[in-house]
């Protein structure tokens, strides 16, 4: 049974190579809290997440809502194990499949088939699994003969279809999704949506960050609202969404 627990987690990003003038400029930027550390305040850090606690169990579909720079992506990357927390602890039980960009490890000079294998391996699939999934990827991407050609010859749409087909072929336990996965022409968008639904259905836990209210409402059964790195609300999707709207109006 998959589970994911964040215990009072804080993430500070170190900023290297900042000049004084740049630090002043930073102060007015949006996003996390900027701090100075060290004896002479020479170290600049941005607090992206501040004391976040979270407990997810089987069948939880968590939606993360928040403005740009609220810490959504950082939280996703933390759940995926990409970032280790600066403070606090993360307990992950189960295989995490992060889908942030469509094709990690994709090489333009390799053929479609070669990339299916490389990306598949990166996403944690075994050779056998990839061999088993390849017909499905062939069919969904509708690339036919093109799969034997270098990926560099593909159009943007074709490349996206391939990346999407590979990424969504996995059997995730804990699925970490960033918005932006999807799009393409109208017909593809429809098929993509069905495929994502299917993928989410196969997963035990799903974490999804998005600006789209519709997507969150249709895909999630829990939600949290992030603001400058802290969870300001957590609970029913509708309630949290309501609060987010209020916040938007007053802000």
């Amino acid at each position: 049974m998959a589970s994911l627990i964040l215990e009072n987690v804080t993430v500070d990003f170190p900023i290297y190579g900042t000049q004084k003038s740049f630090r002043v400029a930073l102060r007015s930027a949006t996003g996390g809290l900027i701090r100075r550390e060290g004896l002479r305040h020479e170290r600049v850090t941005v607090r992206a997440l501040d004391g976040v606690s979270l407990m997810l169990k089987h069948d939880d579909r968590l939606g993360i809502i928040g403005h740009n720079g609220a810490g959504k992506s950082t939280l996703l990357r933390l759940c995926a194990g990409v970032y280790e927390p600066t403070q606090g602890r993360v307990f992950i039980e189960g295989k995490v499949s992060p889908l942030f960009n469509i094709s990690p490890g994709l090489d333009p000079d390799d053929t479609g088939y070669e990339n299916i294998l490389t990306c598949g391996l990166y996403l944690g699939m075994t050779h056998e699994e990839i061999a088993r999934k390849t017909p499905d990827i062939e069919q969904f991407s509708e690339l036919g003969e093109y799969l034997s050609l270098p990926v560099r010859t593909y159009s943007t749409g074709m490349l996206m279809r391939l990346g999407f087909a590979i990424a969504t072929a996995i059997d995730p336990e804990i699925l970490v999704l960033d918005e932006g996965l999807g799009a393409g022409d109208a017909r593809f968008a429809e098929r993509a949506k069905r495929r994502v639904d299917d993928l989410v259905g196969r997963s035990s836990i799903m974490i999804f960050a998005s600006h789209s209210e519709d997507l969150i409402l249709s895909m999630c059964n829990r939600a949290i609202l992030l603001q400058t790195g802290t969870i300001v609300a957590s609970g029913e999707v509708h309630e949290v969404m309501e609060l987010y709207r209020k916040l938007n109006q007053s802000g």
């Binding site: 627990i5 215990e7 993360v90 307990f91 969870i231 609300a233 957590s234």
Partner: peptide, 18 residues
């Protein structure tokens, strides 16, 4: 208010992180 009170409380340690 939903707020901080709704943060899940973690009383039991499931496993120690490596």
């Amino acid at each position: 208010m939903l707020d901080r009170s709704l943060r899940p409380l973690i009383a039991v340690r499931v496993m120690a992180p490596p």
